[in-house]
C-alpha cells in the first residue's frame, strides 16, 4: 500500500528544499527558464532535472508502481507527487541504495542479481524501492506481507516468483545474522 500524503508546508513559497539520496537541493518553483514548474512531478524532476533516470515512468498516473521512491521512509509514487509539494522531505531513489563510500550494493540489490529477480528490468527499481521501504518498517515480513506490499507494482514478464524468492533470501539472511 502506498500513500501520497503530502506534508503541509511552504508550498506556495518560491523555493523548496528537498534532500535526495543524502544531498540537499534547493529548487526554485516557477515557470521561468531554469525553474521547476509548479506542474512538475517528482518523477519528472528526478529524471529530467537531476538525471536520476533510475526511477522509471510507465503509466504516469499512479497505477503501476514503476516510479516508486521512498519519501520520509514511505514508498510513494513519484509520478503522482508534485515537486513543489516536497519541501522538507527526504527522498531515496534507486541510485541512493548503493553505499556512497564503498560503492557496495544494498543486500537487496545483490539478492535480485543472485536470484535473477527480473527479466526486462524496467519495473525493477520500483519493486526494489517498495520492498526496501517495507523492510525498513518490518524487518521480518512473511511472504504474504511482501506480496501485499508489492501489490501495486506492475511486472509484465512475471518475475514475481523470483522477486519473492530474492526478498525472502534477504530476510532469511538477516534472521541468521540476528540469531
Amino acid at each position: 500500500m502506498k500513500t501520497n500524503s503530502i506534508k503541509s508546508g511552504k508550498q506556495n513559497s518560491g523555493s523548496v528544499n528537498i534532500t535526495i539520496n543524502g544531498r540537499e537541493y534547493c529548487f526554485r518553483i516557477g515557470n521561468n527558464f531554469g525553474e521547476i514548474k509548479p506542474s512538475s512531478t517528482l518523477a519528472h524532476t528526478l529524471r529530467e532535472t537531476l538525471a536520476l533516470t533510475g526511477t522509471k515512468i510507465s503509466c504516469d498516473r499512479g497505477a503501476c508502481g514503476t516510479c516508486s521512491v521512498i519519501m520520509d521512509g514511505n514508498p510513494v509514487l513519484s509520478c503522482s507527487i508534485l515537486t513543489a509539494e516536497c519541501d522538507g522531505s527526504n527522498i531515496l531513489t534507486i541510485e541512493g541504495l548503493i553505499d556512497p563510500d564503498t560503492g557496495a550494493l544494498d543486500p537487496l540489490q545483490q539478492a535480485f542479481i543472485d536470484h535473477n529477480a527480473f527479466q526486462c528490468g524496467f519495473c525493477t527499481p520500483g519493486i526494489i524501492m517498495t520492498v526496501k521501504a517495507l523492510l525498513n518498517k518490518n524487518k521480518n515480513p512473511d511472504e504474504n506481507e511482501v506480496m501485499e506490499a508489492l501489490s501495486g507494482n506492475f511486472c509484465r514478464c512475471i518475475s514475481h516468483y523470483h522477486v519473492i524468492r530474492a526478498v525472502m533470501s534477504v530476510i532469511d539472511d538477516t534472521k541468521e545474522q540476528n540469531e
Binding site: 533516470t53 533510475g54 526511477t55 534507486i94 550494493l105 542479481i113 527499481p125
Partner: peptide, 9 residues
C-alpha cells in the same frame, strides 16, 4: 546486465 538493472543504471 544484472548490476545495471538493480541500480537503475
Amino acid at each position: 546486465d544484472g548490476k545495471e538493472i538493480v541500480t537503475g543504471a
